[in-house]
Simulated scan of single mutants.
Amino acid sequence: MSEQDCTKEPADILLVEDNPGDVRLTEEAFNECRITNTLHVVGDGIEALDFLYQRGDHADAPRPDLILLDLNLPRKNGDEVLEEIAENRELSRIPVLVLTSSKSEADIVRSYDLHANAYLTKPVNPEVFVEMVRTFEQFWFSIVQLPPKERG
């Protein structure tokens, strides 16, 4: 690991997931992989947008460096969240990884049409899920150059 990696600020990751079991599995995968990035969790599309726009209970929320977005959400589904993110100049810079149980070709195409940066199908096996989390975390935070956070 380079000195630059050690001094890098932890990233803020927004997990938009309504299934408590999947939230717990994601948190456990982060712990098992010793991922030091901060995981923020919201349970539906409306709350995700409140977090991103820093409204209501999320007025002090940080701007996430990456969004993990389930498609099947209450109140406002993942497609609607993706569409709103894509229409906002500042939010559209945040990479969005769709993390869903759907293997539907229509969902995959629609997600990319709405500018998702990746489409990941949740593995059923917890060990495979942990390995997937480790892989995407390494890719997005060690290899990819993300845009800087805008300072307000």
Rank of each mutant, 00 (worst) to 15 (best):
P126N: 10
E9D: 14
V41I: 14
E47S: 14
D5M: 08
V42K: 10
E131C: 04
V42A: 07
Y53F: 15
L52E: 01
R24W: 13
G43L: 07
M132Y: 02
L73D: 03
L97D: 00
P126F: 08
K8F: 03
R134A: 13
E9K: 15
K8L: 06
I46T: 13
A48F: 06
E131I: 01
Y119M: 04
L71N: 09
D22E: 12
L120R: 01
L73Q: 11
I13D: 00
N125P: 04
P62Y: 02
L14M: 09
D60P: 04
R55G: 05
A29F: 02
P95C: 09
N77R: 11
V41S: 05
T121N: 11
D65M: 02
R110S: 11
L14C: 10
R134D: 04
A61S: 14
M132Q: 15
A116E: 00
I67T: 03
F51L: 10
E28L: 14
V16K: 13
E84D: 10
T121F: 06
H115Q: 13
L66T: 01
K103C: 11
D70C: 09
N125F: 05
P64M: 05
T135W: 06
F129C: 04
Q4M: 05
L99P: 02
E90T: 11
V81D: 01
L114I: 04
C33H: 06
N19Y: 12
A118W: 00
P126C: 08
Q54L: 06
A48I: 03
L114N: 12
D50T: 04
N31I: 00
H40P: 02
V81R: 09
L49D: 01
S92E: 08
Q4K: 11
L71V: 06
L15I: 03
